[in-house]
Design a protein around this nucleic acid. Structure first.
Lengths: 234, 234
DNA sequence: TGTACATCAGTGAACGCGCGTTCACTGATGTAC
DNA sequence: TGTACATCAGTGAACGCGCGTTCACTGATGTAC
């Protein structure tokens, strides 16, 4: 290993360490993370951080990207462990995987799915990582449509026509997320996606306090209910 | 009008004005609202605010309560304009009412349904106002169950049993929200409640950017889809 | 292999701000007799 | 109705903090000849 690459590795490790400390600080400060506090904990002077991140916003961006990646990886890991033909199981595993990650990392969850950070504009590099969970769901829809289990027609009793402008928007999304699937299937999938994160936000942001204590069971119930709405059988 | 009551009225007006300015500042600062900035805009010295609010947290609490009340009032106003027997229509009106309020007041929405404010603990006085939207939904469920339109059994194809621990939690909630309705009906109602705010959070917090542009139609589609899951006909 | 030079991580001081909260005070307005 | 006193809104200074970012610098580590 050349001297240069050792230096690069040390630099990469230090970068990771800064992010790790910053992640811990999200708990105390939320999105108004203090660079000076991070530096203090690392035993450095605050200006030293500028060797690694050009600004506070850049550090925040790195944390956001990492959080999306971690949530996506959790979904992928959980979903990939399920038999490919068990579509409902794959959906449930995805939801559970994301939830477990979110419960372990509530402040990172809040950073990406909570209120936007005032004054912060997410750069384009967050788009890819942010798509990982939707892509997992898209894979389930694609396979379901391919196997015929998911038809363009939803379960008869909950059939709801997709409005024309939404169809148009989804036509573009279909190509990236679930190539080949009809817009109607994707629309139901996006309803499920919304439900998943709505349920997590309610749980993590306190709306269920004093209302539902059986959090895991309630989450599971909602996942299953919306899975049925999508047309997933299990 | 006595002198004392004039003083009281002036005081009340000043209190409202402080809150109005503070609300505007939520846009710039999010939840880390600055008392000094509010005072500055009012042309007062910052210590003068302490005549009206004992601390920054107390001002935040007032804003949170007002926001819940405003969202609840919007839901009530919209829902009450619909024919009582049109359950699906009542649900759609509720959703649209909340969404309109949220789009007009995105920062207040974020304050109550977004990430929790770091270091802030909501006092008990927020519970009542926070229940107003759920109560509107509960009213629809109650009436639906009373008229027989909503049965304990959901639409057959999306039937999903309510887990026992959730049933137990909901038994308590039923009394406050929809007296007389079975837990199964309430569970579906809470799924709809989650979907409603999940959809709003996705829209307001930017998750739909570059994905769905036909926001109103997509929202409407989701409201209808989950309304069917609940068993509301229209 | 040894040496001159370049790179780069981290320092420390400074700039120019911001904040919430307390406290003694002034002066206007209201109350009680 | 007039006067002494109490209430209360708002002031201004201060306390004791915090922050992001810039800049000239030191000194260790790497690179090129």
């Amino acid at each position: 290993m050349t001297a240069a690459s050792i230096r690069a590795r040390v630099r990469a490790e230090m970068t990771e360490e800064i992010k790790a400390v910053a992640r811990r600080h999200l708990a105390a400060d939320g999105a108004n993370l203090s660079l000076r506090a991070v530096a203090r904990e690392l035993g450095m002077v605050s200006s030293a951080l500028y060797r690694y991140f050009a600004s506070r916003d850049e550090l925040l961006t790195a944390l956001i990207i990492d959080a999306y990646d971690a949530a996506g990886a959790a979904a992928e890991r959980a979903e990939s462990a399920v038999d490919r033909t068990d579509l409902l199981g794959r959906w449930l595993a995805t939801g559970r995987g994301v939830r477990e990650w979110a419960l372990e990392n509530p402040h990172e969850y809040a950073l990406i799915y909570g209120s936007p950070v005032p004054g912060y504009r997410a750069p384009a590099d967050t788009i890819g990582p942010a798509s990982r969970v939707p892509l997992v769901i898209g894979g389930i829809l694609r396979d379901g449509f391919a196997s015929g289990e998911l038809s363009a027609e939803p379960p008869a009793e909950v059939a709801e026509p997709v409005p024309e402008p939404v169809r148009a928007d989804l036509a573009a999304v279909v190509e990236q997320i679930a190539p080949g699937a009809p817009a109607a299937v994707l629309a139901r999938g996006m309803t499920a996606w919304t439900q998943l994160f709505g349920a997590l936000s309610f749980e993590l942001f306190g709306q269920l306090n004093n209302v539902v204590e059986a959090r895991t069971e309630f989450f599971e119930y909602q996942l299953r209910a919306v899975g049925r709405l999508v047309g997933l059988r299990g």
